[in-house]
């Protein structure tokens, strides 16, 4: 960290205000029947940094992720991206606004080739309009552009050799990589990764981590959910801890785990069921 560290003066407390927040959320509440899944009073994400969202099973991390990306709707609350409210905005529009997510259970489009997966990720495609689709002239050039862009990304993610294979034939780790690369096709301002390391073998984990750091160097904001503290410590600039639907602590990765509440939360609810799985997917 240099002296331009954006977190230099940020207090180590839940809901701490950031210097230049890209995402802010206020009073976001989500209940499933009588169960409270998410109850976040205030939350900010620093622009251009890597923020980790951690917490024990059932803390509501994935539900919160779904809420921030429009895949689920809270009972109440207000949340902004780049100063614009995303309340009631569809997931597709959230993505078009520049905030793209990946999923905990990878959603590679198995019966499409890797390169088609990538092309689908690109935005501003005229050929995706029904009428324009009839006239290749209108979209052939854009197609070439995005194919070139896809090749660059695939080379970076070491998937270039696989570009003409069906995505279904990739290994679990390669699918994770593909999903991440695909998310980058739209050149988003912010990516939200839901457990990017889950089910990835250790050899690939390293390169995945490098990719995330590289994203930050390119100016992309990253928010990710993760269980493994080693990973979190290695790459994140800031850590937000959730438990029982609330944010209970925030701080730099080196110190946040020493927080007593965090330790209590991790020890206390070890055997609780995971709300994110129990709530309808």
């Amino acid at each position: 960290m240099t002296d331009t560290d954006p977190f230099a003066h940020v207090p180590h407390e839940p809901g701490a205000p950031k210097k230049d927040p890209i995402v802010t959320a206020d009073n976001v509440h989500r209940h499933f029947g009588g169960l409270t899944a998410v109850e976040v009073d205030h939350f900010e994400v620093q622009r251009g940094a890597i923020t980790a969202l951690i917490g024990p099973n059932g803390a509501g991390k994935s539900t919160f992720f779904n809420l921030l990306t429009g895949f689920d709707k809270p009972q109440s609350g207000e949340w902004l991206f780049n100063g614009h409210s995303l309340k009631g905005v569809s997931p597709a529009a959230v993505a078009r606004a520049g905030k793209v997510r990946t999923f905990q259970l990878t959603k590679a489009l198995s019966r499409m080739t890797v390169i088609e997966n990538m092309r689908l990720g690109a935005s501003r495609q005229r050929g995706e309009n029904f009428f324009a689709a009839f006239v290749p002239k209108l979209w052939a050039q854009r197609e070439e552009e995005i194919t070139a862009q896809a090749h660059v990304l695939l080379k970076r993610f070491k998937l270039y050799e696989k570009k003409d294979d069906y995505a279904g034939s990739l290994s679990g780790g390669q699918r994770k990589l593909l999903e991440m690369a695909r998310a980058l096709m739209s050149e988003p301002e912010m990516v939200m990764l839901d457990e990017p390391m889950a089910g990835v073998n250790p050899a690939l984990t390293e390169s995945l981590l490098d990719h995330i750091v590289e994203l930050k160097n390119e100016g992309v904001t990253v928010l990710f959910v993760e269980h493994d503290m080693h990973m979190v410590r290695r790459i994140s600039d800031w850590v937000v801890v959730m438990a029982e639907g609330r944010i209970i602590a925030e701080g730099p990765p080196s110190t946040v785990m020493q927080n007593e509440e965090v330790q209590a939360a991790y020890l206390g609810v070890h055997h609780d069921t995971d709300l994110s799985e129990e709530g309808p997917a």
Binding site: S90, L109, R111, M112, Q125, E128, A133
Partner: peptide, 22 residues
């Protein structure tokens, strides 16, 4: 066409296509 590509994507996984802004 790119239009057909989106449809194929939907056939495979709606949520993934949604997350890509379609």
């Amino acid at each position: 066409s790119p239009w057909g590509r989106v449809l194929k994507g939907i056939r495979e996984d709606e949520d993934a296509v949604r997350s890509l802004g379609k």
